[in-house]
Amino acid sequence: MQRVNMIMAESPGLITICLLGYLLSAECTVFLDHENANKILNRPKRYNSGKLEEFVQGNLERECMEEKCSFEEAREVFENTERTTEFWKQYVDGDQCESNPCLNGGSCKDDINSYECWCPFGFEGKNCELDVTCNIKNGRCEQFCKNSADNKVVCSCTEGYRLAENQKSCEPAVPFPCGRVSVSQTSKLTRAETVFPDVDYVNSTEAETILDNITQSTQSFNDFTRVVGGEDAKPGQFPWQVVLNGKVDAFCGGSIVNEKWIVTAAHCVETGVKITVVAGEHNIEETEHTEQKRNVIRIIPHHNYNAAINKYNHDIALLELDEPLVLNSYVTPICIADKEYTNIFLKFGSGYVSGWGRVFHKGRSALVLQYLRVPLVDRATCLRSTKFTIYNNMFCAGFHEGGRDSCQGDSGGPHVTEVEGTSFLTGIISWGEECAMKGKYGIYTKVSRYVNWIKEKTKLT
Rank of each mutant, 00 (worst) to 15 (best):
E401V: 07
K347S: 15
I454K: 01
G427P: 00
S448W: 02
D410E: 15
K446D: 07
V419S: 05
I428N: 00
D410N: 09
F360D: 15
R75N: 15
S169Q: 07
K137M: 15
I262G: 01
G236F: 05
F395R: 02
G442S: 10
Y161W: 10
K459C: 11
S220C: 06
V419N: 05
R46L: 10
D212R: 12
T186I: 12
K137Q: 12
K109V: 05
G94W: 06
G363P: 11
N38A: 11
T16E: 04
K247N: 12
L321M: 06
V277R: 00
L20Y: 05
W356P: 03
A307P: 12
A9I: 08
H282Y: 13
N328T: 09
I112L: 15
E165R: 12
D378L: 04
C335G: 01
N203T: 13
V278G: 03
E159K: 06
G272H: 12
N313W: 09
Y22P: 02
N313V: 11
V353S: 06
G236V: 06
V199H: 13
T290R: 10
G280E: 01
I256G: 01
S354K: 07
V242Y: 00
D322Y: 02
Y352K: 02
E53Q: 05
K274Y: 06
D410F: 11
S385Y: 15
E35N: 12
R83W: 05
W118M: 01
F399L: 11
H361P: 14
H282P: 06
T276H: 08
T342L: 04
T29R: 08
C28M: 04
P177F: 01
E401G: 10
G254V: 01
Q370E: 04
Q237S: 07
V273P: 10
K455F: 05
S430C: 05
V269G: 04
D33L: 09
G125N: 00
N104Y: 03
T29Y: 12
R364K: 15
S423C: 07
T271K: 11
E320M: 04
D378R: 06
A26H: 03
R140K: 14
K168I: 11
N104V: 00
F87M: 15
V269R: 02
L376S: 04
R140E: 14
S25V: 15
A9M: 06
P239K: 00
P333T: 03
N100F: 08
T158N: 05
R140L: 14
A266I: 01
I300F: 06
V296G: 02
D131P: 10
L24T: 06
Y22N: 04
T84M: 04
C396P: 01
I7L: 10
K347Y: 07
Y441G: 02
V174L: 06
N36M: 09
N203Q: 07
T381C: 05
S99Q: 15
R298I: 02
E86K: 15
A37V: 13
T290L: 06
R364D: 14
S220W: 07
A173M: 13
K446Q: 05
I17G: 02
R162V: 11
V30W: 12
G160L: 02
C97E: 00
Q143I: 02
E171D: 11
V77N: 15
R358Q: 12
C102Q: 01
P333K: 04
N151R: 11
K459N: 15
V242C: 03
P235E: 07
L211Q: 12
C435Y: 03
Y450V: 01
G236H: 10
L376G: 03
E72F: 07
Y201C: 07
N343G: 10
V353N: 02
Y444M: 05
I17Q: 02
I297A: 08
V30C: 05
G403K: 14
E116C: 02
A397T: 05
G160C: 02
V269S: 04
V451L: 03
S99L: 09
E53L: 05
Y441F: 09
K440N: 15
Y450G: 01
R62A: 13
T16P: 06
E193T: 06
V359K: 14
Y441A: 07
R43A: 13
T190D: 08
E159L: 06
E434S: 13
A26D: 02
V248I: 13
D232E: 14
M394A: 08
E433I: 05
W453K: 00
L372D: 11
G355Y: 14
Q370P: 03
T381N: 14
G442P: 04
L60P: 15
G236D: 03
M437R: 10
L425P: 00
C141G: 00
V154R: 10
L383P: 03
T225E: 13
I275K: 02
A149S: 09
Y391Q: 13
L367W: 12
L41W: 10
T81A: 10
Y371F: 13
F121G: 04
S448D: 13
L327V: 07
E340P: 08
G253P: 08
N36L: 07
K293S: 08
F224Y: 14
A265W: 01
I309V: 14
E86F: 04
N258L: 01
V154H: 08
I390M: 07
R373N: 12
G106V: 00
E61L: 06
K293A: 06
L60V: 15
V248F: 09
A250P: 08
N283K: 06
V416E: 02
Q96N: 15
P44M: 10
T215K: 08
A207N: 13
R226V: 08
F360Y: 15
H34G: 07
E433Q: 14
E401R: 13
T225H: 10
S70N: 13
T389N: 15
I7K: 15
P324S: 05
N452G: 13
C97S: 01
D200H: 05
Q143M: 07
S99T: 11
N100H: 11
T426L: 01
G253C: 11
T271I: 09
S99P: 10
K362H: 09
H289C: 08
G246K: 05
V30L: 14
V416D: 01
Y371C: 06
